[in-house]
Structures are given as structure tokens and as C-alpha cells.
């Protein structure tokens, strides 16, 4: 077959994905950056170029900084907790025990559950007056409408949903560590936690690093649980409101698309930096291997 007709086949085969991606994903991403420099009136019928005005307003807005801090706090609480607990359960499952596949299935359940449905049951568990949690603990705490606790409630729900999946990734990493290494360490008299510290942890570092980056990128976009568990009328909202929630509010409730675009473009920048960092570290580790 000549190369011209091979090319024709190739272009035909990539055409749906290429065109669809350019129209529905690539162009919108570029357009979002453009929107950040505009001021729209009459529901977008009239657009003025305003340069950096949206960003100047954003950086002077105390609420934006609060939202950024909330988002970062969520990341800082959620990611390490998830990593530690996932590693803990993965190590336990890696010991040759019966029923490993049953545990895998049970821990994976939250992963196949719609966030909206899970959020609703958590709201009922956290409820102040008739909630399961308060009646088990014998307390009377407003877990999701007291600003001292709301963030922790969100983190708990996030961790509950994330453990199963991350545990599996870490378990796969653990199974890649050669057995003879442990046997040699045992001959040297290493037991329990020392084996974990001197063999497991160093060899697991690349897995843990990539798992963390993926978790961080996901956590910077937290929206669903704030929308569903906290809700727009909750007095604790200002202490947990994330960048994406603020984007949603500004763009689709206050109809200020340009200000919303500015918020989400800041998030884009944060994510690009994280991805670049991941890429650099990946190169480093591949060489190191």
C-alpha cells in the first residue's frame, strides 16, 4: 500500500477525536483565558476588553484569598490522610491473609458510588439532632454547619471515598517489591516496622509520589461535596468554600462569567505547575531506576 493512502486512513481514523477535541475541549480552554480579559454585558451580547481588570479585582478580593486558603487547607488535610491510611491498609492486605479479595471489594465500594448519593447519607449521619454520629459519640455537634468542624467533615468524606482506589494502587506498588529483599533483611534481624522503614517505604516512594500528585490535582478541584454536604445557605460555607465553588457561584448564580473565568484560570495555572512538577520528577525517577 502506498504511503498516500496510508496517510488518508490515518487522518480518517483520528478525525473524530481530533475534531471533537479541538471544538469541544481545546477551543473552550483557550476561550476561558480570553473570557478572563473581558467584561460582558447583557448576558454576553456585548463584550469589552478590560485587560487585567478582572484579575486586579480578584487579587483585591478578600473572599478569593479565603477561598484559596480553604482549597489549600483541604488539599493539605485530605492528601496526607488518604496516603497514610491507604498505605496502612495496603500493607495489611499485602500480608498473606485470607479474604483479601473480599476486603478489596468492600473498600472499593465508595469508588463506584455516586458522590451525590454518598453526600446525602453523610448529611444524615452528620446531622446535629438525629444524626448517627452524634448518637454514637454521645455528642451534640453541628458537624457540617459549625465552621470549626465543617472542613474536617468534608475531609472525612473525601478520605472515605478515596481510600479504596489509592489502596489498590499502593498494593500494586507493594507487590512489585522483590521478596528476596525482605528475606535478606530478616537474616539481618530486621522485623516489623524496621522492615517497613528501610525497605518498603524507600521502594514505594515513586508510587506514593504519583498517587499524591494525582490526589492533589483532584483535591484542588473540590466542588461536589461542598455543594451537596455544606450547601449554599450554610453559615459554615465561607470557611470551606473552594475555588471551584466560587467559580460556580460567580458564573452561574451571579452571572459574572468573566470574574468566574478569572477564578478558574488561576486554578488552571496551579494545575499546570503541578503537572509540570510531576513531569520533571517522573524523568528523574525513570533515570534513577
Amino acid at each position: 500500500m502506498n504511503s498516500k493512502s496510508r496517510y488518508a486512513w490515518a487522518y480518517m481514523m483520528i478525525a473524530p477525536t481530533l475534531i471533537g477535541t479541538l471544538v469541544f475541549w481545546f477551543y473552550p480552554a483557550v476561550y476561558s483565558i480570553y473570557l478572563g480579559f473581558l467584561k460582558s454585558e447583557n448576558f454576553g451580547l456585548v463584550n469589552h476588553w478590560v485587560g487585567w481588570a478582572n484579575y486586579e479585582r480578584l487579587f483585591k478580593d478578600a473572599e478569593f484569598w479565603q477561598n484559596l486558603r480553604n482549597t489549600m487547607l483541604y488539599v493539605v488535610l485530605f492528601v496526607p490522610t488518604t496516603i497514610v491510611l491507604s498505605t496502612f491498609f495496603a500493607v495489611l492486605l499485602n500480608a498473606k491473609i485470607k479474604g483479601r479479595s473480599v476486603y478489596r471489594v468492600i473498600y472499593f465500594l465508595p469508588q463506584v458510588t455516586m458522590a451525590a448519593a454518598a453526600a446525602m447519607v453523610w448529611v444524615i449521619i452528620f446531622a446535629q439532632d438525629y444524626g448517627l454520629l452524634n448518637s454514637v459519640l454521645g455528642t451534640h455537634v453541628a458537624w457540617i454547619s459549625d465552621k470549626r468542624f465543617a472542613m474536617y467533615a468534608l475531609v472525612a468524606v473525601g478520605v472515605w471515598g478515596a481510600i479504596g482506589f489509592n489502596m489498590l494502587l499502593i498494593l500494586a506498588g507493594l507487590q512489585g517489591i522483590p521478596r528476596p529483599l525482605y528475606e535478606a533483611a530478616e537474616l539481618d534481624g530486621a522485623v516489623g516496622f524496621r522492615k517497613f522503614r528501610s525497605i518498603t517505604l524507600p521502594l514505594l516512594t515513586p508510587t506514593l509520589f504519583f498517587t499524591s500528585i494525582v490526589l492533589v490535582i483532584g483535591a484542588t478541584q473540590i466542588f461536589d461535596s461542598i455543594y451537596l454536604i455544606i450547601g449554599k445557605t450554610n453559615v459554615a460555607l465561607p470557611s470551606v468554600r473552594s475555588l471551584v465553588y466560587a467559580y460556580y457561584q460567580n458564573s452561574f448564580i451571579y452571572y459574572d462569567q468573566n470574574y468566574g473565568a478569572a477564578i478558574v484560570n488561576v486554578l488552571l495555572l496551579i494545575n499546570l505547575i503541578l503537572t509540570g512538577f510531576q513531569f520533571l520528577m517522573q524523568k528523574k525517577w525513570v533515570v534513577y531506576d
Binding site: S32, Q221, Y248, S251, V264, L267, N271, L272
Partner: peptide, 10 residues
């Protein structure tokens, strides 16, 4: 590499 919310308004 682009977070999903970036696409939504456009």
C-alpha cells in the same frame, strides 16, 4: 492537563 471547570463556561 486542564481542570474540568475551565471548560464549563465556554
Amino acid at each position: 492537563m486542564v481542570p474540568n471547570p475551565v471548560f464549563y463556561t465556554p
